[in-house]
Computed example of a mutant assay.
Amino acid sequence: MTRYRWDMAFNPPGFRTVILLALGFGLKTLSNVLERAGDLASDPGTRLFNHVSALAVLIAAAACFIWALKLMFFDKPRERNQAEATPEEALKHSDIYPDEANFDPDAALARYMTNRTGADLDDLPAPKPGRFGRKGL
């Protein structure tokens, strides 16, 4: 004999639950409109069609409410999967570009400075005080 265990754990309403509740209230309102139209109809066939349609729409609304309650109270609690919770280790720069593993930025700057043509930094005019960006142009 199988024993069923009804664990009630409250899951905060997510997007699906909110949409189901909104759809249920919308269907309930549509059922009220159809029932009122059936009450005001003069032909017995039209009255019967409107009342049966209202009943079918009301059953659909009840199904939406029951489904939303099931999602909130009787589903398994949402837990993060441990495999999904820990991301893979990111690749390092040396893994992607193995040729540049022995790169020395100081040596590269020294090579650039010795091979550079043109004026040195000392020969450049000093910036004018109080000017920033293109305001001084």
Results as ranks from 00 to 15, higher is better:
residue 1 M to W: 09
residue 2 T to L: 15
residue 3 R to C: 08
residue 4 Y to H: 06
residue 6 W to I: 15
residue 8 M to H: 09
residue 8 M to T: 09
residue 9 A to G: 06
residue 9 A to R: 10
residue 9 A to K: 13
residue 12 P to N: 11
residue 13 P to W: 01
residue 13 P to Y: 01
residue 15 F to T: 11
residue 15 F to Y: 04
residue 17 T to M: 04
residue 18 V to A: 05
residue 18 V to I: 09
residue 19 I to H: 05
residue 20 L to H: 03
residue 21 L to S: 06
residue 23 L to W: 07
residue 25 F to C: 02
residue 25 F to P: 00
residue 25 F to M: 03
residue 28 K to W: 10
residue 28 K to P: 00
residue 29 T to Y: 13
residue 30 L to N: 05
residue 31 S to W: 01
residue 32 N to K: 07
residue 33 V to L: 08
residue 34 L to P: 01
residue 34 L to H: 01
residue 35 E to V: 00
residue 35 E to T: 06
residue 36 R to Y: 04
residue 38 G to W: 01
residue 39 D to H: 02
residue 39 D to F: 07
residue 40 L to P: 00
residue 42 S to D: 09
residue 44 P to W: 06
residue 45 G to H: 08
residue 47 R to D: 04
residue 47 R to L: 02
residue 50 N to P: 00
residue 52 V to K: 11
residue 53 S to D: 11
residue 53 S to T: 15
residue 53 S to M: 10
residue 53 S to K: 09
residue 55 L to H: 13
residue 55 L to G: 12
residue 55 L to K: 13
residue 57 V to R: 10
residue 57 V to T: 15
residue 58 L to W: 07
residue 60 A to K: 04
residue 62 A to F: 10
residue 64 C to Q: 03
residue 66 I to K: 12
residue 68 A to V: 15
residue 70 K to I: 11
residue 71 L to H: 08
residue 75 D to Y: 10
residue 76 K to N: 14
residue 76 K to S: 15
residue 76 K to V: 11
residue 81 N to P: 07
residue 81 N to A: 14
residue 84 E to N: 15
residue 85 A to D: 14
residue 86 T to N: 14
residue 87 P to R: 12
residue 89 E to W: 10
residue 89 E to V: 12
residue 90 A to Q: 14
residue 91 L to N: 11
residue 92 K to W: 07
residue 95 D to G: 14
residue 95 D to F: 07
residue 96 I to E: 08
residue 98 P to Y: 07
residue 103 F to N: 09
residue 103 F to S: 08
residue 104 D to K: 06
residue 106 D to P: 00
residue 108 A to L: 06
residue 111 R to C: 02
residue 113 M to I: 04
residue 116 R to C: 02
residue 116 R to S: 07
residue 118 G to Q: 01
residue 119 A to V: 05
residue 120 D to T: 05
residue 122 D to V: 00
residue 123 D to K: 02
residue 123 D to V: 00
residue 124 L to C: 02
residue 124 L to F: 04
residue 125 P to L: 03
residue 127 P to M: 03
residue 128 K to D: 03
residue 129 P to L: 03
residue 131 R to F: 02
residue 133 G to Y: 02
residue 136 G to S: 14
